[in-house]
Design a protein around this nucleic acid. Structure first.
Lengths: 192, 192
DNA sequence: CTCATTCTGAAACATTTGTTTCAGAATTAA
DNA sequence: TTAATTCTGAAACAAATGTTTCAGAATGAG
């Protein structure tokens, strides 16, 4: 037959994702992308497609990574509450030390309103995040690690939406203490 | 001397703000703006300045409106808790019925990371929002309307960052019940 | 090796972008 | 009215945008 694709598509998607993550969809040009991916635009259009398609693939990639992380944590042998508090502390560290906000959050506000496919991917991702919290809360309640006088689904919903505001706060104020105090209050609410 | 500016600048800013609000900064073109403002680009550049400057003015305008609303509510004769719960219910209605998410939130994620002036304006706005909540919580505690076993500043921080996630949730799931249930839990936490 | 097929690189594409130019219309103070 | 000044409209600007084209290099099957 004929020759195969020369570049590593997975790596190229990873590189493109990093650019989209940092600059956002609309502020990223095709040149920015092909520079980072180290491929020619003709190769891009031959294999992946146009800018929108590439973005969809990048968001997919981003949410896949998150999914793997949640699955790994859920499979842990440790106590549900410990897994949950660890997760929260690591989330705080990512907010405080990360170079950019969560790509899912940024994309929800910039792109999801106009692109149905992106919205679907992010909605599914949010649902998994929700489910992750729900499972941990439920298990922690069963084990008596936290009080069970509240609907775990409601708590999962509520806590799941809480992170987003922490990102915004850190963008505006760059105050690590603020985030840490909110996280501490968050955990205290669960356990007390 | 010479002739005066023909167009109503305040109205033009309002119109520009609506476009930026809906489409975001980067997805809005100068043509989009001049069409909505009904002025020629030469007039725009002569009076207000370039696209960035116009955006700054629009964000300013947006946050000014919010400030007025908070001041009005704080001046109310009603009980602090009633003012607070009313505010929350109205916020929920805006999320559920509004055509777009909060412009301050959208701009924080899309622009504030790259534009120092926008960041400053939004940080100041966030501080006022915080202060608004703090004052109400403090007053409600003094009046014994809510329990006072928690630092009001922490509560204000925490609650202030909570809204943002509700917007994201509504973009992704368009589920009014979800938002209402979170708001109810929110109020319950305060009062119980 | 041959040859059909597929990929790549560089250039070109038409649009759209944000911004500027400038002649002429409009205005105001004298 | 005059004259100095400032605004407006239409057109033009270079640069950047997303996308396509195509000749030739690379590849794998026979």
């Amino acid at each position: 037959m004929a020759r195969n694709v020369e570049f590593d598509e997975a790596l190229a998607i990873q590189k493109a994702m990093e650019v989209f993550w940092k600059k956002g969809y609309n502020a990223t040009s095709l040149r920015d992308l092909t520079d980072a991916m180290q491929i020619n635009s003709s190769s891009l259009y031959n294999t992946i497609g146009d800018k929108q398609e590439l973005f969809v693939r990048c968001v997919q990639h981003y949410t896949n990574i998150r999914k793997k992380d949640w699955d790994l944590r859920l499979a842990s042998e440790r106590s549900p509450l410990a897994v949950l508090t660890d997760y929260i502390h690591e989330a705080v560290n990512i907010i405080i030390n990360g170079e950019d906000s969560c790509m899912a959050v940024k994309s929800a506000f910039e792109v999801a309103t106009n692109d149905e496919r992106v919205k679907q991917i992010l909605a599914a991702d949010d649902q998994r995040s929700n489910r992750f919290l729900y499972d941990l809360i439920q298990k922690a309640m069963d084990k008596g690690e936290i009080k069970n006088d509240e609907d775990p689904a409601l708590l999962a919903d509520y806590f799941n939406s809480t992170w987003t505001g922490w990102y915004e706060s850190y963008i505006l104020h760059k105050d690590p203490v603020k985030i840490k105090r909110m996280a501490a209050y968050f955990i205290k609410q669960l356990t007390k």
